[in-house]
Nucleic acid binder design. Sequence first.
RNA 1: GGAGGAAUGGCAGAGUGGUUUAAUGCGGCAGUCUUGAAAACUGUUGAGGGGGCGACUCCUCCGGGGGUUCGAAUCCCUCUUCCUCCGCCA
Length: 420
Amino acid sequence: MLDIKFIRENKDLVSKAAKDKRFNVDLDSLLKGDEQLRSFQAEMEQLQAERNRVSKQIASASPAERETLKAQVSALKPRLETLEQEVRTLSADVERQLLLVPAPARADVPIGKDDSENVEIKKWGTVPTFAFKAKTHMELGEKLDIVDVDRGVKIAGSRSYVLKGWGARLEQAILRLTTDKLIGKGYTQLSIPVLVNEDAMTGTGYFPGGRDQAYLVERDNMALVGTAEVSLTSYHSGEILKDEHLPLRYFAQSSCFRREAGTYGKDAHGLYRVHQFLKVEQVIIAKNDVAGSEELHNELLGNAEQILQDLELPYRVVYVCTGDLGQGQVRKHDIETWMPSRSAYSETHSCSTFHDFQARRLKIRYKDGSGQNQICHTLNNTAIASPRVLIPFLETHQQEDGSIRIPKALQPYLGTDVIR
RNA sequence: GGAGGAAUGGCAGAGUGGUUUAAUGCGGCAGUCUUGAAAACUGUUGAGGGGGCGACUCCUCCGGGGGUUCGAAUCCCUCUUCCUCCGCCA
């Protein structure tokens, strides 16, 4: 959420930024509502002050004076009640509109319409070439009896899967390597709710805009998270933190649930786009400092890169263009890992800086040196997401006989150097 | 699921219709004293918003929302959370 004052003073900038991000917002309607709200509010407060002043006199007034004063306050009531009602309605309306305004991207973010205009900024590793006919992860998974999509679909419908035997063990090993890595870097591990309330979803920016993408548990007014970011970022909502404790570095492993509405037919085959998966997510809550946040952003990105390097998977980093940014994201880098069956780098990680967009919604603040309350900055990045990462893993490390070579860093977690 | 009880500032805790601009204590911050520290003493210390160039000023907030009243932390309705007991249960 943006500061309404910022929108008031920078309407053109916010408007252009929304267009660049391909969001439709009616700033005129928002600002008109805001202006009207403040005018009603001023009048209401004036009447309230009058009411308070006279009411106070009643306590010490003589019985005769009392009736006169009461009548005086009663005369204010009709107008005051109207104003209170207007203010209530208008502030709800302004709030509703405010929740839809996207955060402007940082000035250096490339302008573009969608992911095809993201800008590659780095490549790591050598794209594998095979002296034999390489198999897809699905062929490998079936042959090794470690991926069972058919039975997953039988139990849970399309975009479902089962990992079996070495498949499940491989997933656990990769997750464990990841969490150990982050613990080693001093991040605090949290085990968090995946079933959360509306406030957490709205506070992180997934509601109201992304409601269609979430599984709702409507009877209890809850939602299943699409990422642990929701719970991790909401963890300190409503709190005023001590600045000496910032930045707070957290991570959590969780199940993630995504409806993937509007993607019928897209990536329908295999493990790429599924409704439920496991992810280790990193979240940082930091001071309101743009340069500091940039450093932390790079730190989060670096953590993810190191994990892919440990897994010996070639990847590239792209700077995501405006059209591919989420509502609250100020800047984002995706890591795309090479997937041989696609002959392409495909997204496996997403590193985002929000500045104060989420923290303002969630009311995460800290006291700065001069005792002023400041709104925090929040950032997050994937550390690893499975089963998507199994696609490049199986395909890249496959050998001619269909067995999978296990990189050195992962061997201690799996107790073998090959899956066959 | 049923029956009771509770929710007040960073924390503890008073307050059941009007000098409450929420007492008091602890904690925090600043100062006095001290070589320094502790102790003691003095002062200060919640959040959000509106108006004003400004000294400043006004409004709202006692778990959330609604209501009664000239006036609500206090009374009523409702929701949420926590505690105790009963039932059920991995």
